[in-house]
Structure formats: C-alpha cells, structure tokens
Design a protein around this nucleic acid. Structure first.
Length: 658
RNA sequence: GGGCGAGUAGCUCAAUCGGAUAGAGCACCGGCCUUCUAAGCCGGGGGUUGUGGGUUCGAUUCCCGCCUCGCCCA
C-alpha cells in the first residue's frame, strides 16, 4: 500500500515539475516527517530547486502544492518548516486497501539467483562466526524468494584443503591411526553419542600446536602437513580416504546444526570434484585464450602465471610486481585460480559440469552433493544469472580478483551481477573469553574484542550456544506455563531460542564487528527476538478472547467509516501501527537492493514497538463503540499479519503462547 | 608501504540520495499488574557525532589533512 501511493505521488510530482518549471527530475528524495501528525511523506525538493529557480524554498513549495491539486489516495498537501512539502494520506482509504492485502508485485522475469553461504571448513565444529554467515545468507535467500526470484542455495565445501589436512595429520600422526583405526574411532564416537565435530575441534587445535611445539621437528612436521595435503588432493589413497570419511561426517554435523535454526541447502559443491573433474584446466585455457593470464618472464614472479590485480593500473614498463599469482612457478594452482574456475561454472560459462548425488534429506526437500560420477537423474545446478557470496570481509581481495577475472574474460554482465555479500566477523569480548576459561593476555584484555580462532580452539561453538539458549528459554517457559504439556513447552522454548539467536545476528548492520557476549546473546528483553514474538503472542491472545480471527477482523472493517477514529492525537496512535505495517514491502525491496537484512530486523522491531504502544493505550475488548472496536481489532490484525510476515523473512516463528 | 572498514550517550548499536529537535536497547533513577500476557508500558538524567579545515540554505552523512583501532595485500 505505502509503496503504491509513494510511486503515484512521485509520478504526479514529476509531471508538475515538467509542466510548471520544465524540469525533468530523475530521482526525487522522499522521506517521512519527524512526527506522524505532519503526514506520511515529506518532500525536501523545494530546497534543491531554490537555487536553480532563484526563489525562496517556501515560495516554491507553495507553488508546487497549488499545482498538485487533488491526487487520488491523498487527503492533502501542506508546506512546513523552511520549505518541506508534507503529504497526507487518505487514512481511511489507505487502511481499507492495506486490510484487503499486502502484496509484493512479482517480477516479470524472475532471476535465477544463486546464494552461497555457510561454507565451513569440514574439519571442526561450527562456531558463532559461522552462525552469523549462515543466518545472514539464509535470511537473504528468504528475502529474494519473497520478492519472487528463483533461488538456489549452495554451501561450498573445501574438503581437500589445508584445514582438513591438519585434522588428518592429527589422526594419523598424533593418534597413530590407520584408515581402519579412524573407522573404529568414528564408530566409537557414534556409540558414545559424542559429536565428531567437537572431537575434531580439539584435535585441530592440538595439531596446530604440535607443528610449532618442537623447534627441531618444526620443519619435518610442516613437510608432513604438506605431504598429507598433496595426498588428499591427489586422491585414491588411505590418507585421502580418511579425509573423505572425517570431512563428510563433520559436514553432516554442520547440516544438523544449521537445521536447528531452519537453515537448509540445495547443493554442496566440493573442492575435491573441482580438482578431480579438472575444472581448472578448462578455466586455464579460457584465461590464456582471453589474455587474462600471462606468463611472467622476470622479477619475483618469474615463471608464474599471473593476472592484473583488481583495481590496479596496467603496468607498461617491466614486470607487474603487484600482479596476482594464479599458477605458481612449480605448477600448483592458487586458491583464487580454483575459485575462478568454480565461478565460471556458477554462471554456466565453464563448459563442464559436476556429477551429483543425494546427500541429506530435509522434510520435503533434498540436498545434493557433487560427485565425480553421480546420479544421472538430478536437478539442474549452476548457470545462474546473479550470484551472492556470503563471505566475511577479510576475503574482499580474493573475491575482487575473481570478479576481475570474469570481467577480463569479457563476462561483464556476470561480473556486474556478482555480489560479494560481505560482513564483519564475530569476535568475543575479553570478558566472554575469560568466562569460557581461556587465558587472556593483558594486551587482549584491553581490546574491545578478540578474534575467534579455530586453530587455537578459541571460540564459542554453535551447538553449545544453541543448547544454552534453549536451556534458558526452557526455564522461562516452564516457570510461566507449568500447565502446558512438556512437548508444547519444549517447542515454545525452541522457537524463542531460535528467534533470540537469529535476531541477535541480524540486528547489526553487516559491516559492524559483533563483539559476542553471552549476557547480550541470552537476553530476551528490549531489542531482541523474543520481544517481537511477544507482540505477536499478545495479538493471538486478543483474538482468542474476542472469539474471532485476524482475517475476519480485517474483513470486518470493510464498509465502516473509520475516519472519525483516525484523526487527532488518538487517531495518530492507532494510525501509527497501520503506517508501519504498510511499509514491510518497501523494506523488503530496500533490503534486497542494499543486501542488508538488518533493515528488516529493525522494521520488525519498530512495528512491535508501535503495536506495544497501541496495545497499552487502547483497550480493545472493552471498547464500547462497535465500529471503533472493529477498527481496533483490525489494527491488531494488521500488526500481527505484518509482524508474522516480517519475522518469517528473518526465519523466526512466533509461538502460540509465551 | 598500499588497499578496505570503523571512531556517535556510561556500554552495545541506529540514523534512507546531504534535510525538520541525532534515535533505540542495555545499565541507572522513579512510576504502572483487580481491565486483551509486566519477555510489557510511561517518565527522568545522559551528546563539542575522534580532531582540524573545506563545500552549502543545511554536514553524523560529501571532500582534504591529522590521530586511534581492526582487517587484507606484499
């Protein structure tokens, strides 16, 4: 509703500017007045025109208001302040229209988008940083789908990388296990119901320390690490089999952890297939032919295949010492090289495809994994028109280089539709680190936050956090609603815990470092998920007691004259809820355009606040005037509808009671 | 050395393309449960937006210098 009126107003304004001043305005700024009593839209355009027209802003604003005349859906326009034009909606009409529906206009040609998120090295348990990634990515998927786009969700698995190699070194050389020994270990862990990702968390940290522990052995151990990595990359040996076994088991644990938060994937592309299906060879040929790669003849990169770094100037005299090495002089391909090949595949430009086989079953949905020879009957993957890579900001440089390679190959459209969905890391506050029993140096204690490190085993595991959240919400629910059956209390506690966690990860803008603290994350008051859920629960209670439904209440205001109840200060306090509720679609569009889910989180919070204010001020069930009561019920209904809708976009559900 | 990001209330964060009195939450103080759920609501104190210039009707926002912190690259 809000967007439609906004577009109509701007169209009319453009026409007025054209007719009266012969001005073609491409973009017109539109805001909301500081207080709702001034109207719903504020236009500062008279200020901009003042100079051009050599007139006082107020005078221009008055002329424009006179020229606007009657605009359908609007009650009037007025000049305010030094020259603002404030627009007032026809509130009763707007309420009727919002009550009828809140729709998103479906795109004419839905985009085939590919969102990649989570992408945890399968060598240890997921931690809070991975949670931020997965929750951001999953939320963005929900936003795109709500806007009518076709979205495939991928979780990239680096199963042949150095991190997996470290755990394999730990198993084989610290624990002295063979392939059969590792199989026995995994069986034992399963029998004892121990999480293998937790076991690897500790082993990975131990192995990392072991490399450095003995100065005399340091060189030999680093060589062992390198040999192990190469054996894994090559495949077809026991070392690779151990890597496959362990990384796949850890991967399954990651999928289970994320499923606790309602996060699912369509495909798990693995590095092992990128290697074994020789994706790089195809990309190498394309890049050589396209002139993107060249063999450096002199300087420090002599003998390497390099490309111009993203954003760098072309070097004409001598070697480009700043160039990005793609193939080292010993013939090995760098990570960026493999990533370029993978991204050519994502856009359907590589001329090669993976094999696929089923890997994980969700209720009503199957997740596939790549394979050298797969199931012949599989869905189509890749070939996206737009891609979004949810990767932390530290990867900005390699991401830029992949985009640069695409552009260099002439795939400018694809390069333009490649979004590095960047976000800052989750770190721990020094207090949190101390609380967890880690030793904190004096230097670290003085910092606002300390970076999480899997190598040091330093961090908060995702499942531990979820477990703690559930324990805390369970205690609250049990004490508030002892009369409910256990299953219902558990389900309620789970929903609140998930709501608290998801909202916590979404309330910050992407480029803010989150300094994680249990006190804040386990808070259920104020700007938190449970606050939003509580607002919904209150509306549910109203409809239960009123013996009606939100749908019926929205239908019931059709035909009544709501105008007497939507004016003045009293009316403003009701209208505020409608106005906020009307903006959900606008916020959805803004979130997609800016790739910033936090705006919607904030919107949902503000709507919950508006409703809470309204709820306190107007007692619905005891309202004497029947028409006014209908409006109040419809207000609660529209608040509930848009809250549930906004929360769903954030991946949060609201329980029946709490 | 080069690149990117950040610096706003005691703390954690917002602030749409440059707009009206810079807003929330937490913490603190004081009120509100016999009326739809107090995981709530109302009120209060709390700001030289790191710093010095510039641009203009108007700057937290844009430009330049400096300081501090974080990340990335060699």
């Amino acid at each position: 509703m809000y967007l439609i009126e906004q577009k109509r107003l701007l169209e009319r304004l453009r026409a007025v500017l054209q007719e009266n001043y012969d001005i073609q305005a491409a973009t017109l700024a539109i805001e909301q007045p500081p207080e709702i009593r001034f109207g719903e839209y504020a236009l500062p355009l008279a200020f901009e025109l003042a100079r051009r027209l050599r007139k006082a802003p107020r005078k221009i604003a008055e002329e424009i208001v006179a020229a606007l005349g009657e605009v359908p859906g609007f009650a009037g326009f007025e000049v305010a302040g030094a020259g603002y034009i404030n627009a007032r909606l026809d509130r009763p009409a707007a309420a009727q229209s919002l009550a009828a529906a809140s729709t998103v206009s479906a795109p004419e040609h839905p985009i085939h988008a590919l969102v990649e998120h989570t992408s945890i090295n399968p060598n240890k348990a997921a931690h809070v940083g991975h949670l931020r990634n997965a929750i951001l990515g999953d939320t963005f998927v929900r936003l795109l789908r709500a806007a009518g786009q076709q979205v495939a969700v991928q979780n990239y698995i680096d199963n042949t990388g150095v991190q997996v190699a470290d755990v394999v070194v730990g198993l084989m050389h610290l624990e002295g296990l063979t392939l059969a020994g590792v199989q026995a270990l995994m069986a034992r862990l399963q029998q004892e119901q121990q999480r293998i990702d937790y076991y690897c968390w500790d082993l990975y940290a131990r192995t990392s320390q072991w490399y450095e522990a003995d100065p005399e052995q340091k060189q030999a151990r680093k060589q062992l690490r390198l040999d192990t990595l190469h054996a894994i990359e090559h495949g077809g040996n026991d070392t690779a089999a151990i890597a496959e076994l362990v990384s796949t088991a850890v991967l399954r644990r990651h999928l289970e952890t994320m499923l606790r938060l309602g996060i699912e994937y369509d495909l798990l592309p693995r590095e092992s297939e990128i290697l074994h299906l020789h994706f790089w060879d195809a990309a190498f040929e394309l890049m050589k032919a396209g002139g993107v790669l060249y063999l450096e003849a002199e300087g420090k990169n002599k003998g390497c295949w390099v490309m111009k770094r993203a954003g760098a100037e072309a070097v004409t005299d001598g070697p480009d010492e700043d160039a990005k090495v793609i193939v080292r002089s010993n013939g090995t391909v760098t990570y960026v090289g493999k990533d370029i090949a993978y991204h050519l595949w994502k856009f359907g430009l590589l001329g090669k495809d993976f094999g696929y086989r089923p890997f994980f079953e969700y209720p009503g949905h199957r997740c596939w994994i790549t394979a050298e020879t797969g199931d012949p009957d599989h869905p189509h993957f890749g070939g996206a028109q737009a891609i979004f890579n949810v990767i932390d900001s530290r990867q900005a440089d390699p991401q830029a280089n992949v985009i640069e390679a695409l552009r260099g190959l002439g795939f400018t459209r694809q390069a333009a539709n490649y979004t590095h969905f960047s976000y800052e890391m989750v770190a721990l506050t020094p207090r949190c680190a101390t609380e967890l029993g880690y030793e904190v140096s004096a230097e670290d204690a003085a910092r606002p936050y300390i970076e999480v490190s899997g190598r040091k085993g330093f961090g908060v595991k995702a499942d531990d956090l979820i477990d703690r959240l559930i324990a805390a919400t369970q205690a609250e629910v049990d004490s508030r609603h002892p009369e409910l059956p256990l299953a219902e209390r558990e389900d309620t506690a789970r929903q609140i815990a998930v709501g608290a966690l998801r909202y916590f990860m979404l309330k910050f803008t992407r480029n803010t470092v989150i300094a994680f603290d249990f006190k804040e994350a386990l808070s259920f008051e104020g700007e938190t998920g449970p606050y939003l859920q509580y607002a919904v629960v209150r509306t549910r209670s109203i409809f239960r007691k009123a013996d009606t439904t939100p749908e019926q209440s929205l239908a019931d205001i059709h035909g009544i004259d709501t105008a007497p109840f939507l004016n003045g200060e009293e009316g403003d306090s009701i209208w505020q809820v409608w106005l906020r509720a009307a903006k959900t679609t606008l916020l959805l569009e803004q979130c997609i355009e800016t790739a910033e889910p936090s705006y919607l989180a904030r919107h949902a919070f503000q709507l919950a606040q508006d409703f809470s204010n309204f709820y306190r001020k107007h007692h619905i069930l005891t309202e004497a005037n029947p028409d006014r009561k209908k409006l109040l019920l419809a207000t609660a209904a529209v608040a509930q509808r848009e809250l549930i809708r906004s929360l769903a976009l954030l991946g949060i559900t609201a329980p029946e009671v709490m």
